[in-house]
Design a protein around this nucleic acid. Sequence first.
DNA 1: CCAAAAGTGTTGGGAATACACCCATGC
DNA 2: GCATGGGTGTATTCCCAACACTTTTGG
Lengths: 232, 232
Amino acid sequence: MPPDCFRHEALGVVFQVRDKRLSVLLCQRAEPPFEGAWMLPGGLLLADERLGASAGRHLAAKADIPEIAHLEQLETRSDPVRDPRERVLATAYLALVTPGARARLPADTAWHPVDELPPCAFDHRSIIGSARERLRAKLSYTNIGFALAPETFTISQLRDTYAAALGHPVSATNLQRILTRRGVIEPTSDVTRPAASGGRPATLYRFASRELVVTNPFAAFRPRGTAGALTV
Amino acid sequence: MPPDCFRHEALGVVFQVRDKRLSVLLCQRAEPPFEGAWMLPGGLLLADERLGASAGRHLAAKADIPEIAHLEQLETRSDPVRDPRERVLATAYLALVTPGARARLPADTAWHPVDELPPCAFDHRSIIGSARERLRAKLSYTNIGFALAPETFTISQLRDTYAAALGHPVSATNLQRILTRRGVIEPTSDVTRPAASGGRPATLYRFASRELVVTNPFAAFRPRGTAGALTV
DNA sequence: CCAAAAGTGTTGGGAATACACCCATGC
DNA sequence: GCATGGGTGTATTCCCAACACTTTTGG
């Protein structure tokens, strides 16, 4: 192998909100190095393959994940000794899946709440940290929540989803108003039936778009009335 | 060369505010492909070299840039045919230099205002666009302006710097108040001498820190009084 | 005194959190 | 009727753009 030529892997940080906790998909290693530790799903980049496609392919192969609602590139790690066996560059992807379809997982693969991560192989723990930061930030200024929520949902369910992903309590009252004003969510004509204990039926909402949209553009120091206009 | 093994280059998007315009450092190609078009400085990753160090090394070699005030990874491009000769992955870096030391440039290298880019080779034009977006966003919620401003400066000078980088007019009045309130800039005890036409002497300011600091954390949906606390 | 440039005081609008209150259902 | 959960109205706070006004210099 020529000296200025490297293997390159795509890693997926797959987040799903499960049982009101943000969880990440991990695979347990059966061999050294890091035997018994947990690693992010992923694998080597092939010739004529793009990194995003490679991440998607490995996730589909490893965990039979039915549908990834959102996939975006995070960062590339290049420490020459991040893999002690051989140099491998790694490009990490943030992948979000909705709580609907539960994939059948191989025996070595499981969901782990991000608050209770097991020992992780390589630099994967810090990659998960980066992914979490990215998710937290984008929840604040985009509609990225669509990729963590089911097709329709009540505001209470959405509050639990946001609270799990953000890591702090969220007010259902304000969540509804802010996301509605921004045009991120909209009510459907359906309502839920209340539980046996009673209570008012909840309106079902949906996301207005299931594509990533920036709803809160960075606008510091911009004069009024120049919403998107630039002097380009 | 094994089929799952790739060359990898580091590219630098070097921004500097020159003559009140945001400009990027480009090199003109002397050979095909894209002969005569302009490209970002950069070059191949070496064994035992990290990507950030590689970007810095190529910038130092190409343009003798004395000091890069800020360097951060942008994104990795992996289109198999982004280079028509051979597959090369590219990781782009955002590099900011202060208007002080003017590097001596080779004959094929020059600064170009980002509003009037010449024809660009490969996917470099879109990479410059990504870099610009990143810079615009970070100016809004971090102290990244330190990397585009000289050691000390008047508010008017800083306004021109921000206006150039953001691409829209900026109010000196509000810029001073906001950055002071956030603790990003602070006055020195020095003042400038007014021009021959008169005017009040301007206070010289400096950035409180010359390391990247997030001053405006994403805090949507967070209850008051939980500034940084998370339920982790 | 006047022009020019810098800096401060003040106002108004918009957005977000907090909280009180009303609504609709099951038992 | 009452408990339970859903939704709305309203107050308060904070941030920031806008603009008038004051300060400090040179001629």
